[in-house]
């Protein structure tokens, strides 16, 4: 059993370091954003974000398919700029944060598209439900930063039905889909 764990740890470590460069998402400097929007009554957009999350990714432009990303979001950090609404969003009607304090995204597959665009497949766990989602992603840029580091940044969007993740509070017919908007900037380790 110990050997197995050791072997797993080693292979995990080697796969992390093997080819693509590893990046830590720059949450310390807040150059990463997990935002969402949902229609309000079908008349306008409501925007919100998660303030606390962490993650890392590995990326190599030449070997895009080997890239991967793991993200852990603290669901209690939901912020829609209205304390009473955020309290409701954290309740059992929506995110149920006392039962499911973390949401995660773990990529499974990267499919290159034209230019710097790619499809990022992965498992999104939200409200205790895990479903595959596809993020339409794009590399925005990479290079040296002015402070001696090396950074790469990406943006991506995806959408899903609230009810697919067991969130059944009725916000009206126009408000069943939530759109996620992610921007991550990583600092190469």
């Amino acid at each position: 059993m110990k050997k197995l764990i050791l072997a797993a740890a080693l292979s995990a470590a080697s796969s992390m370091t093997a080819n693509a460069a590893d990046y830590k998402i720059d949450t310390d400097g807040a150059h990463a954003f997990v935002q969402f929007k949902i229609s309000h009554l079908g008349y306008s957009w409501l925007y919100g974000r998660f303030n606390t999350f962490d993650g890392q990714f590995s990326y190599d432009a030449a070997k895009l398919a080997e890239s991967e990303i793991n993200l852990v979001i603290d669901t209690a950090s939901v912020d829609s700029n209205h304390a009473e609404r955020d309290k409701h969003l954290r309740s059992g009607d929506f995110l149920n944060v006392s039962k499911h304090p973390k949401a995660t995204f773990n990529s499974t597959k990267v499919v290159a598209k034209e230019g710097d665009k790619f499809d990022l497949y992965g498992n999104l766990t939200l409200n205790g439900v895990t479903k595959e989602v596809v993020i339409n992603a794009e590399k925005l840029g990479e290079g040296s930063d002015p402070w001696g580091g090396y950074r790469a940044g990406f943006a991506g969007t995806t959408s899903f039905e609230l009810k697919d993740f067991g969130i059944n509070y009725d916000l009206g017919p126009a408000s069943s889909t939530v759109y996620l908007d992610l921007t991550v900037e990583g600092i190469r380790l």
Binding site: A83, E84, K87, R90
Partner: peptide
């Protein structure tokens, strides 16, 4: 609860009671 984001509480639209925002973490909850 209602003033955790600094919003005031309106009393029947007659006057507002000011809010002082979040005084401790997870105040509304």
């Amino acid at each position: 609860i209602s003033t955790a984001d600094g919003r005031p509480i309106s009393v029947f639209g007659w006057f507002n009671v000011p809010g002082f925002g979040e005084i401790f973490p997870q105040q509304a909850d």
